[in-house]
């Protein structure tokens, strides 16, 4: 293909050169011709015409070949896209996959923690379920593009930490690519009724809400503001653990101060991602204090 293209270009260049030369000769002929001049002009005309014909022929051939290649590429792309889609798991397949097995999913970013050292932890979801992508391999530039609703395809290993009753997630080092097309922003699902039941775990990693919860305890991770805030809320006597992750929402001063200033006995509505650490341990993204 390359050779042919070069031949075409050379032929074209030759034709142009010859045409250029021919032009000058013609002018000379008009100014005072001789029989030798006519012969030369005739030879030049023949050469030019032949070269142009060859060039046209080669161009047509090249165009046909380019068209074939484009068709092949398109077919290949379609095939590749089909292959990729075939490898992508539905949420149901992902949920059924063994721990430590390799998985590929497509999901929509809902939020992410602070980027650091080419890693970022992402809360993601599709219409079926939630995913936590722990320390996803990610450049700072790409992290900036992980906005709410963005669709990504992620490949990595499914894991659970702690190994018993822990958070199901994609292990550190999973890779991803952006997927053009639709976006999706999940609405929080009200799971208040599920507090204390075995069904709550089915909403792991999803955006959820709890209504009319009672504040039991609030403490800063380091004993003072500047890091995570641990919050225990209860519903009908059953405690649920919550955490304001500093690397997720620490920069939201209003939220941070509201959570930090909660007092035992207050009633709140709370939203967050249902992280799991030996039980529910939701990461707070919003709170409304009722009294």
């Amino acid at each position: 293909m390359k050779k042919k293209l070069v031949s075409v270009i050379l032929a074209g260049a030759m034709a142009l050169c010859l045409a250029g030369c021919g032009g000058n000769t013609t002018t000379d002929t008009e100014n005072g011709s001789s029989s030798l001049g006519d012969l030369v002009n005739s030879a030049i005309d023949d050469a030019v015409n032949n070269a142009v014909d060859e060039a046209n022929s080669a161009l047509n051939e090249a165009a046909d070949q380019v068209s074939d290649v484009v068709d092949d590429v398109n077919a290949g792309l379609e095939e590749a896209a089909d292959a990729v889609s075939e490898g992508v798991m539905s949420y149901e397949e992902y949920a059924a996959a063994d721990i430590d097995s390799e998985v590929t999913i497509e999901c929509y970013v809902q939020a992410h923690q602070s980027w650091w050292d080419n890693k970022v932890s992402v809360y993601a979801q599709d219409e079926e379920g939630g995913y936590f992508l722990y320390n996803l391999a990610c450049s700072e530039e790409d992290a900036a593009k992980l906005t709410e609703g963005t669709k990504i395809r992620v490949t990595g290993y499914k894991t659970m930490w702690p190994e018993v009753n822990g958070e199901v997630e994609l292990a550190e080092g999973a890779t991803f690519e952006f997927v053009d097309g639709d976006t999706f922003v999940a609405e929080p699902k009200d799971v208040t009724e599920l507090v204390g039941t075995d069904d709550l775990v089915n909403y792991m990693n999803q955006k959820v809400s709890f209504k009319d919860m009672t504040v039991e305890a609030v403490s800063y991770k380091n004993g003072e503001p500047g890091d995570d805030i641990y919050v225990t809320l209860s519903k009908d006597g059953t405690n649920v653990e919550f955490c304001l992750e500093y690397y997720l929402n620490g920069s939201d001063e209003d939220l941070y101060n509201t959570v930090g200033n909660l007092e035992a006995g207050q009633t709140v509505d709370v939203e967050g991602f249902l992280y799991w650490y030996e039980g529910p341990d939701a990461h707070i993204t919003g709170i409304g204090v009722k009294n």
Partner: peptide
Amino acid sequence: KISSYPGNFINAGQ
């Protein structure tokens, strides 16, 4: 890093 704190598993008889 893979499983969690040794103490938790020891204390649970695991």
